[in-house]
Nucleic acid binder design. Sequence first.
DNA 1: GGTCATTAATGACTGCAGTCATATTTAAGT
DNA 2: ACTTAAATATGACTGCAGTCATTAATGACC
Lengths: 200, 200
Amino acid sequence: MSLREKKKLETKNNIFEVSGRLFKEKGFENTTIDEITREVGIAKGTFFNYFPTKGSLLLYFREQKHELIHELLEAEKSKNVPTKEKIKGFLVLLAESYEKDKELTKLFILEYKRYAVHSGFSPDNGNSMHYRFSRILHDFLEEGAENGEIKSTVDLETAAEMLNVVYFHTLIVWLRSENDFPFSRNISAKIDLLFEGIRN
Amino acid sequence: MSLREKKKLETKNNIFEVSGRLFKEKGFENTTIDEITREVGIAKGTFFNYFPTKGSLLLYFREQKHELIHELLEAEKSKNVPTKEKIKGFLVLLAESYEKDKELTKLFILEYKRYAVHSGFSPDNGNSMHYRFSRILHDFLEEGAENGEIKSTVDLETAAEMLNVVYFHTLIVWLRSENDFPFSRNISAKIDLLFEGIRN
DNA sequence: GGTCATTAATGACTGCAGTCATATTTAAGT
DNA sequence: ACTTAAATATGACTGCAGTCATTAATGACC
């Protein structure tokens, strides 16, 4: 790695670290780029060589966080429990990992939503949280379908999409609540409902 | 109504009308307050006497739109069809009403989401789209429960919340698509799935 | 119809995100 | 070591949302 590359990486990490701290301390809106760059010791313009907008920092936070997801996923995939339990376990674990950085998570979930409405979660965007999650959930469901745990008439894409969207909605409500919200029970109830149906 | 009140209403309507037109013509981000006020013939500051932020215009658009909802609702409520069909009918009608102002709808759905993440859809906020919708859906479900169409073990609040969130997600995807997306079939399939469950 | 308090209008001003022409640093070729 | 091209850094500048102290319009009351 050349001197150039080393410096570049270091600058990016510095921006990342400082902005994360400031966002947590004072919130996203109350933190200015000027503040971040002053603290990092770079010029304002330099920031924009690394991140195209202030909001894109949040997408980067999300990406970093999601490196962890695949570990959770592998651990959960190999368990020998019914599909429904696997999905519950995965989503609860995931939420617990978000819980560690509640404030930051709120921010990047919000930013994701903004992005999602503007530009969509198109399949060709490998970094789309929505897409990756739907894929993972779809894999679980497919396994369940192969075992005969799931009705053959169910469209697995649709089911995965619904799990996904219900999950994120619940996550947001949970993140916003002051921890008196029993996330895992709540999401479990919804997954049950989706598996069992509501019709008598 | 006094002269004052008349003028006030007229100014508000003018802002509403001009901004709506400009948003449709050039998009929300590309329309500036200066432009709106110039065209309306008021000073910039006056705008903020009527709407606290640029985004709040979108909430106002939404409110206006939602005056229509209750008409749809009443028509649908009185039909004598199964609960599931009532819900489908209502959601499809609603989507069709959104379709008339696709670009504007996109904007205010986005703004709603932003708002929702920031400040929640608290029950005490009577204007919250989320809350009103959940209430309406809840009413439908309650009727279904009374007729024995719905499992007694199902928590109606949860079911309404899920219908709601799945609906809005689907709506967004549909609004973003270029009309080749069969909304009513898609949302119907999801409602079916939620009613019947996915477990074999 | 004149006085005064209340309500609304005004636009210069502030703060911040994001741009861009210019300057500096790096690395490769000779 | 010198030259040169490419990569990177810089900060003054622009554009826009939102504020606020000041001014104008309105209507209640005598």
